[in-house]
């Protein structure tokens, strides 16, 4: 069976230009050779700190940025070689929900127009059909039908995020990219939205690319988790294994830094020294070696690869 989405050795380098002629002086290696797959109806969670390339990965998947190397395959087809019609199909198949529902909804449009806009752009429909689709979408995300006539400012944060989710579902996509979908919401509202997303996945067979910095939420939502550090995937595996029995020293430190859910819950004490280096000039060898508690000589020169089998990019596991 072919995976819904497959990234093979994907690169995205942004050139840093200086001077009058804009000569490139090096590059920001935002995404530096990553591979992953997303199966139909499943969730891939991506975790990592700022600057690790999570959002660039999302943009590559959404087709908002073109990769500088490697390939993306959607339903087995190479995205780069698609014709215009194929490209449109691809764009319809992948939709997005962003972090801030106050910024992602046009305040001058009515909710009905917001949700229907992708449909009107991509398809021709008569009005009764559109109306039926709109009602079904509002019902799916738990909003009343009268919401269609209102403006976004009349809704709270959680309800706005429901509107954004309804819009992302308008074209019946097979993959939805969720970039921090609950971090702008109140704590008591987050569970509502996470439950809604899981219900929609079960009902519509959606696949998710779930990006968040709240590790417990990612573990809760995902089937597979990819841990990124400075543009590379350092560990990839079953969500439960990554969350509870991580192997890569960075993953272990990251999950050790996650906050406990109870005062008596004791976590491994690994406090990393230093900060994430700049992706403009990443350390040689393993990017993590300057902060790694179990660094060895070969980590400084030789880049560890993510291999099949145990999918950990670390010399400790070779």
């Amino acid at each position: 069976m072919t995976a819904l989405l497959e990234a093979v050795d994907l690169f995205k380098h942004f050139p840093v230009r200086r001077g009058v002629f804009g000569k490139a002086h090096g590059a920001v290696r935002a995404v530096d050779g990553i591979s992953f797959t997303i199966e139909k109806g499943k969730t891939l969670g991506v975790v990592g700190e700022s600057g690790c390339g999570k959002t660039t990965t999302a943009k590559l998947v959404l087709g908002l940025e073109d990769p500088t190397g490697g390939a993306l395959r959607f339903n087995g087809e190479d995205v780069a070689s698609l014709d215009a019609a194929g490209r449109r199909r691809y764009r319809r198949g992948i939709q997005a929900v962003f972090q801030d529902p106050y910024a992602s909804l046009n305040p001058r449009m009515r909710v009905g127009e917001i949700i229907m806009e992708p449909l009107i752009t991509h398809e021709r429909h008569d009005t009764p059909e559109l109306k039926r689709r709109l009602e079904r979408l509002l019902d799916l995300v738990g909003l009343p039908a009268r919401a269609a006539a209102l403006f976004p400012h009349e809704f709270s944060g959680g309800q706005r995020q429901r509107i954004a989710i309804a819009r992302s579902l308008a074209l019946s996509p097979s993959l939805v990219v969720l970039d921090e979908p609950v971090s702008a919401l109140d704590v008591s509202i987050r569970a509502q939205i996470l439950n809604l997303l899981r219900d929609l996945q079960a009902e519509l067979g959606l696949a998710y690319l779930f990006i968040a910095h709240d590790l417990a939420a990612v573990a809760h939502m995902s089937h597979t988790i990819a841990v990124m550090y400075l543009g590379r995937v350092v560990e990839l595996g079953d969500a439960n294994t990554v969350a509870t029995a991580a192997r890569h020293p960075y993953t272990r430190a990251l999950f050790a830094a996650a906050l406990p859910s109870h005062p008596d819950e004791k976590r491994e004490e690994i406090v990393l020294a230093g900060e994430v280096p700049s992706p403009l000039n990443p350390p040689a060898g393993c990017h993590f070696h300057p902060r790694c508690p179990s660094v060895m000589e070969r980590c400084r020169g030789e880049e560890p690869k993510l291999r099949t089998g145990i999918r950990v990019a670390c010399h400790l596991y070779e």
Binding site: V187, S188, R190, A216, A217, A243, T244, S261
Partner: peptide, 12 residues
């Protein structure tokens, strides 16, 4: 309502 690592597949 907060997700926990221990019981990740239960509904919140």
């Amino acid at each position: 309502s907060i997700p926990r690592f221990a019981d990740s597949r239960n509904r919140l």
